[in-house]
Amino acid sequence: MKKLSIPAKRKKLTIVQVISNYPKAQPVPSIKGGTEKIVYELTEELVRRGHRVFLFAALGSRSKAKLITYPKGLRHENLARYVLNKLPDSTDIIHDHTFRSALGVTNPKIPTVCTVHIPVKRRVKYPVYVSKRARQKMGNNRGTCVYNGINTNEYEFSAVKHSYLLFIGRIIRNKGILQAIEVAKKTGKTLIIAGPVKAPQFFQREVKPLIQKNPHIHYIGPVGGKVKQRLIKHAECVLFPILWDEPFGLVMVESMACGTPVLAFRRGAVPEVLSGFPNLICDNVREMALKVREKKYPSPNVLRKYVLQRFTNKKMTDNYLKIYHDVIQRESIAGLMR
């Protein structure tokens, strides 16, 4: 019998990153989209490590990788064909971040890893989920898990906190905005609400009247950049009372990187992201309000150190590179066996 020669692990790879959340494509990076930010951080770190990286992304994107932007009017059903027709020579692996796994579902000849960033079920060969809970719920425990990571150098740390609570995120029911307002009401604390209104009728009918009735509650709209940094780093606490199984919850990591504690409901990936601080996890509004009054928070330095140990762009990239090499080797061996 002919002996199989297992391919050696290559130090430098040619990697194609693909991102598009059609029909509302955002440039990379984006102050509006957490997924775009994660793809940007991963791409830039891969470039820093000397890999040959190509990024397919929306117009207006920027990157140190070789950037290939989509033409105007490109529809989702044509995205995979467009990318495959423009693949660079000697591509080792494709990393599909599209919200519908546009590349992965076509099962291309090039080894393809698909990160499932949102709660959808897609039958692809090599799925990666952003939490163990997401892998369990959406992947039936298939595939692997890689936590999102941030560039902590971009997050301003402050041990000085002001006396306000912060809710930051999309203004929709499932993000728990009504619950955050109820916590502020029960505690008498000032609450600053920041984020885009994604459910206008819900906001007008249910959220806005509560804000108008309470002089301690302020809605300031969408924020980004330095304004977002200042809001987070000086908040006494960030409220994250989600009502659905959110796959990750990047704002929790961003807040702790700034030294700001997060009180969150026990849903989705919250028990994983806050596994080091179980006392910050709440089961209801009453418990969250009690914890706000008690103010038994970890120190800002401990919170920052926690993120540095678990949720950095470098750690995320390490984990993805392990997956890339594993998938490439598995596909190479499978090719030799055919």
Results as ranks from 00 to 15, higher is better:
Leu4Arg: 15
Ile6Glu: 13
Lys9Thr: 08
Lys12Ser: 03
Ile15His: 08
Ile15Ala: 06
Val16Pro: 03
Val16Asn: 04
Lys24Leu: 13
Pro27Asp: 06
Gly34Cys: 03
Gly34Asp: 07
Val39Ile: 12
Tyr40Lys: 08
Leu42Arg: 01
Leu42Cys: 01
Glu44Tyr: 04
Val47Gly: 01
Gly50Asp: 08
Gly50Glu: 08
His51Lys: 09
Val53Pro: 01
Val53Cys: 01
Ala57Glu: 06
Ala58Trp: 13
Gly60Pro: 05
Lys64Phe: 02
Ala65Arg: 01
Lys66Gln: 14
Gly73Thr: 08
Glu77His: 12
Leu79Asn: 04
Lys86Met: 05
Leu87Phe: 09
Asp89Gly: 09
Thr91Ala: 14
Thr91Ser: 13
Asp92Arg: 09
His97Glu: 02
Phe99Asp: 07
Phe99Met: 06
Arg100His: 12
Arg100Asp: 07
Gly104Gln: 05
Val105Cys: 07
Asn107Ala: 02
Asn107Val: 00
Ile110Lys: 15
Ile110Val: 15
Pro111Thr: 07
Thr112Tyr: 02
Lys121Phe: 01
Lys121Trp: 06
Lys121Asn: 13
Pro127Leu: 11
Pro127Cys: 12
Val130Asn: 04
Lys132His: 08
Lys132Pro: 02
Ala134Met: 03
Lys137His: 05
Met138Trp: 13
Asn140Lys: 11
Asn140Pro: 01
Cys145Asp: 02
Val146His: 05
Tyr147Met: 02
Asn148Ser: 07
Ile150Pro: 01
Asn151Leu: 05
Glu154Pro: 00
Phe157Asp: 13
Phe157Glu: 12
Ser158Asp: 09
Lys161Val: 00
His162Ile: 00
Arg173Gly: 00
Ile177Val: 14
Leu178Arg: 15
Val183Thr: 10
Ala184Thr: 04
Lys185Ile: 00
Thr187His: 09
Thr187Leu: 02
Gln201Asn: 15
Gln212Arg: 15
Ile220Phe: 04
Val227Arg: 15
Arg230His: 09
Ile232Lys: 05
Ile232Tyr: 04
His234Trp: 00
Glu236Cys: 07
Glu236Thr: 08
Glu236Lys: 15
Cys237Gln: 07
Phe240Trp: 06
Phe240His: 07
Ile242Lys: 06
Leu243Ile: 05
Phe248Gln: 03
Gly249Pro: 03
Val253Tyr: 04
Glu254Gln: 14
Met256Ala: 02
Val262Leu: 11
Arg267Ile: 01
Glu272Asn: 04
Gly276Leu: 05
Pro278Ala: 06
Leu280Ile: 07
Ile281Asp: 04
Asp283Ala: 09
Glu287Gly: 06
Glu287Asn: 10
Lys291Asp: 12
Glu294Leu: 10
Lys305Ile: 00
Val307Met: 10
Val307Lys: 15
Thr312Gly: 07
Asn313Gly: 05
Lys314Val: 14
Met316Asp: 11
Asp318Val: 10
Asn319Glu: 15
Tyr320Val: 03
Val327Pro: 03
Gln329Arg: 15
Gln329Glu: 11
Gln329Cys: 00
Gln329Thr: 09
Arg330Pro: 00
Ala334Cys: 11
Gly335Pro: 00
Gly335Tyr: 11
Leu336Asn: 13
Met337Asn: 08
Arg338His: 11
